[in-house]
């Protein structure tokens, strides 16, 4: 590769790095074109011309331009645990002789199946989330998730998690014939502690907080690059990052 072409590739690499989230995909396409340009000088001209795109600040639209994330290690561990739980309880249900045991394992299977399905569907929805580098899009995504949750609370689906938990617990009681060991109670309380039930009031409060953050971010868009002018107490103008003004907003509440 000639030095001129190498320079063109370097410029395009920098443009891809500095492009705004909404332009990233486009700039990647633009950068890829350099490999199809025959003349080195034309490639350099193409690269220099592309620098203007850095000034074009666009937010990434939700669901587009972002590739689906691969499942995290924790997701996979939980899926395997649920799968193992489903297989185990299904086998036990089919091989048990007494009706009590069979019903118990059936209820455990129901609970495991429900949580497994929830886990997969949640991941399918969230894998298209926008990058956290575009805070506004990310907040709107979280808000949409809260709206969805709230809409579920207005239907019979609000009772499904509680019913699944109850099913698992009753199934377990039937399997052990009511003789619950100490650690069984401990795990039950731990489960409740880790998954406190959400109420519509709590969700509405979080939506309100998210709206406030979005509104404040809109006001801060007065200056490019998320900065705006502030005056210190001597009246001198200063630049401060939007995050400094907003406080710790890198991970909004209710995430």
């Amino acid at each position: 590769m000639s030095p001129i072409r190498r320079l063109a590739v370097r410029i395009l690499g920098a443009v891809v790095r500095w492009a705004s989230p909404g332009c990233k995909e486009w700039v990647k396409g633009l950068a890829r074109e350099v490999e199809f340009i025959g003349s080195d000088w034309s490639a350099l001209g193409w690269a220099i011309g592309s620098m203007r795109v850095v000034l074009d600040r666009r937010e990434a639209p939700i669901g587009s331009g972002s590739k689906p994330a691969r499942p995290g290690r924790l997701d996979v561990i939980f899926w395997l645990l649920y799968l193992e739980g489903c297989c185990w309880s299904c086998t036990k249900m089919l091989t048990s002789t007494g009706w009590q045991q069979r019903l118990g394992w059936g209820l455990v299977l129901l609970a495991c199946g429900y949580w497994a399905a929830c886990s997969v569907f949640d991941w399918l929805r969230e894998r298209w989330q926008p990058s956290t580098s575009d805070l506004e899009a990310y907040r709107r995504f979280l808000r949409a998730g809260l709206e969805l949750k709230l809409s579920r609370y207005r239907t019979v689906r609000r009772w499904f998690p509680a019913l699944a938990s109850l099913s698992g617990w009753v199934g377990y009681l039937l399997i052990v014939r009511g003789e619950v060991p100490f650690w069984g109670y401990l795990m039950g309380y731990a489960w409740l502690g880790l998954n406190p039930p959400d109420t519509p009031a709590k969700i509405l409060k979080r939506i309100g907080e998210m709206d406030a953050l979005i509104a404040r971010a809109e006001r801060l868009k007065l200056e490019p690059n998320g900065k705006r002018l502030h005056s210190d107490h001597w009246g001198r103008l200063q630049h401060r990052d939007a995050d400094q003004v907003l406080g710790s907003t890198s991970q909004p509440k209710g995430a």
Partner: peptide, 9 residues
Amino acid sequence: SGTLYPILM
């Protein structure tokens, strides 16, 4: 390229 791509976007 700097003129074309913003138009395409």
